[in-house]
């Protein structure tokens, strides 16, 4: 196995991890600050991808599509918070799961009504379609490097927002004691709407970025949602740093596992059996990782103690 191939796979793992981070950061904000399990987070991801595809098709500009994705997902998030989520804060998690599961169905069928049942076309912008040479003679697509950069930018923005701004102070305070900050005169319901819209916009951004690599279709959000939950459980609920570390761990483990495990088994088994066993184990690997982390740290890597 050439080390260039390994380098390429590490980059792939980083890129995959970064897209998971953009998705998971919104989920962990909402879950951590508002105590809300939002299964419809995957639907907001889908909304972002569809908005980006529709606007990019109409205007020919991927950048405008990205703006539309952020706006549409944030608007959908704010609307959902005002109409549905707001009534669920005081309820237990089971009610939240039921209601947000209903939202998944509504979003999916609503999207089908508007856009039809066939997948939409969304491609990467021509300016980012090339590839850069890697040492060792291989090449790596520019767009995937841009995705890594966007993920880093989102991480920096969130650290700044939470750590350095007034809104961040309110978010942290709301996480610790929501009655107290309401008593101090912060409009908690407006704060929650803003956080929810922010989380939704991040999901929409992830959907648009990934939609250009994958297929924009109804139901695209649910598989990613499961992975996003794995990420925030590993990282610790409510922690942006945890989401970042968790996402990179999951991305690297998954990508490298799929690549290395079948090769490792080839040393002891004949090729097609090795492929079968290796692939089966590789698809379990992130869940094994999650179980391992939870045994070692039941609250996740950066979960609040106590």
């Amino acid at each position: 196995m050439a080390w260039t191939l390994l380098l390429e796979q590490v980059l792939n793992g980083l890129q995959y991890g970064m897209t998971l981070f953009v998705m998971a950061s919104g989920l962990t904000l909402v879950f951590g600050v508002m105590g809300l399990i939002n299964l419809a987070h995957g639907s907001l991801y889908m909304v972002g991808a569809f908005a980006c595809a529709a606007v990019a098709a109409a205007t020919g500009s991927f950048a405008l599509g990205l703006v539309a994705a952020l706006a549409a997902a944030a608007a959908a998030g704010a609307l959902v918070e005002l109409l549905v989520i707001r009534r669920l804060y005081a309820r237990d998690h089971l009610d939240q799961v039921l209601a947000t599961f209903a939202l998944i169905l509504i979003f999916s069928e609503g999207t089908r009504w508007v856009f039809g049942s066939f997948p939409l076309y969304l491609s990467i912008p021509a300016a980012l379609s090339g590839s850069v040479p890697l040492p060792g003679g291989s090449a790596y697509p520019v767009y995937r490097l841009v995705v890594i950069a966007v993920g880093l930018a989102v991480a920096a923005f969130l650290f700044w927002l939470i750590g350095r701004t007034r809104l961040g102070v309110q978010i942290r305070a709301g996480e610790a004691d929501r009655e107290m900050i309401a008593a101090l005169g912060v409009d908690i319901s407006r704060l929650y709407t803003a956080i929810f819209a922010l989380g939704a916009a991040l999901a929409g951004l992830a959907g648009a970025l990934v939609g250009a690599l994958q297929s924009v279709q109804v139901g695209m959000g649910e598989p990613v949602l499961i992975l996003a939950f794995v990420v925030i459980v590993i990282g610790g609920i409510g922690s942006i740093r945890g989401a970042l570390v968790g996402a990179l761990l999951v991305g690297l483990t998954d990508t490298l596992g799929r690549f290395l495990l079948p090769q490792a088994f080839r040393a002891v088994l004949e090729p097609s059996a090795a492929t079968g066993v290796g692939s089966a184990l590789a698809s379990m690997l992130i869940y094994v990782l999650m179980a391992g982390v939870l045994i070692w740290r039941p609250k996740g890597l950066y979960g609040a103690a106590g």
Partner: peptide
């Protein structure tokens, strides 16, 4: 056969497989 790979059902990112194909 230059290679035989099983991907995960529902997998959406194939960068790893494509790198293997290239190599």
């Amino acid at each position: 056969l230059a290679g035989e790979v099983y991907t995960q059902l529902g997998q959406t990112d194939y960068a790893g497989e494509i790198a293997q194909i290239r190599a």
